[in-house]
């Protein structure tokens, strides 16, 4: 059974319960941060911060109206995760239920996933030399919703089977006259397990345009080793010709 989480920023009040709860369940330390005029803090995801709320303030000088959006950001848990494809040591796994999980015991810190992810999610930690990111509480799912979802006071995060979440997303899309990012309107990397229903264009929230298929460069990583075949053949051919030449020289 595949599960998904619906993220509904229009319902979010920016209390950051998700951010703190994530640290609690995953036993991640608080980061040493500095003053943020925008309030997004820690300003970026990191090895110790799997998820955070991005505060996005818009102010219209002419009408005087202000809009403050709170955007929960973390791994999208793609159907075809580029990070997992790029990983040379198979440390990243897509689970049937949806989570894309880094096994940090396997991780060698090569950062291929960091580069491969179109959302810039996996984060390298110089202290441990490993990469980590949100794992959709693979240990809880499906027995219990992810920790952040449980904590959300306003149901801006909802957990359910992927089908039910898609249903809810479509209904909410109509209410908001908005967009569904992750499925329906936009299926990055084959669709994601975190699905956003938005009341404005995805770009307003800083969501990138990502194609449904894996970026062509990711399979290159995987398949380029096949070049060893022509290399081996070429080398063999060279050695054969070299040996033949030497034999000839010896005969002479």
């Amino acid at each position: 059974m595949e599960y998904a989480v619906l993220v509904d920023p229009a319902k979010c009040i920016g209390c950051r319960a998700c951010q703190v709860t994530c640290k609690r369940w995953n036993n991640r330390p608080g980061e040493e941060t500095t003053f943020s005029n925008e309030w997004t803090n820690p300003p970026k995801l990191s090895f110790d911060t799997y998820t955070h709320i991005q505060f996005k303030l818009e102010h219209d000088e002419t009408t005087g109206s202000t809009k403050w959006r709170f955007f929960n950001w973390r791994c999208m848990h793609c159907h075809e995760p580029a990070c997992a494809e790029a990983c040379p040591v198979s440390a990243i796994t897509k689970h049937e239920e949806g989570p894309v999980v880094v096994n940090i015991n396997r991780c060698i810190g090569c950062k291929f996933c960091v580069s491969a992810c179109p959302f810039g999610i996996p984060k390298f930690d110089p202290d441990t030399g490993k990469v980590d990111k949100c794992h959709m509480c693979y240990d809880r799912v499906p027995h219990k919703e992810p920790a952040c979802v449980q904590s959300c006071p306003t149901d801006a995060l909802l957990f359910g089977t992927r089908d039910s979440i898609i249903q809810k997303a479509m209904k909410r899309k109509e209410e908001l006259n908005g967009y569904v990012y992750g499925d329906i309107d936009n299926k990055p990397l084959g669709g994601t397990s975190f699905i956003y229903v938005l009341d404005a264009e995805p770009s307003v929230f800083g969501l990138p345009e990502v194609g449904e298929a894996l970026p062509a460069t990711v399979p290159v990583i995987k398949y380029s080793k096949w070049l060893l075949v022509p290399a081996a053949l070429g080398g063999l051919a060279y050695l054969v010709s070299w040996r033949r030449r030497r034999m000839k020289e010896k005969e002479e």
């Binding site: 580069s115 179109p118 460069t217 380029s224 070049l227």
Partner: peptide
């Protein structure tokens, strides 16, 4: 975004 692919492919 492309460097892991280039790095690997160019090696081979």
């Amino acid at each position: 975004e492309f460097t892991p692919a280039i790095h690997t492919a160019v090696t081979y």
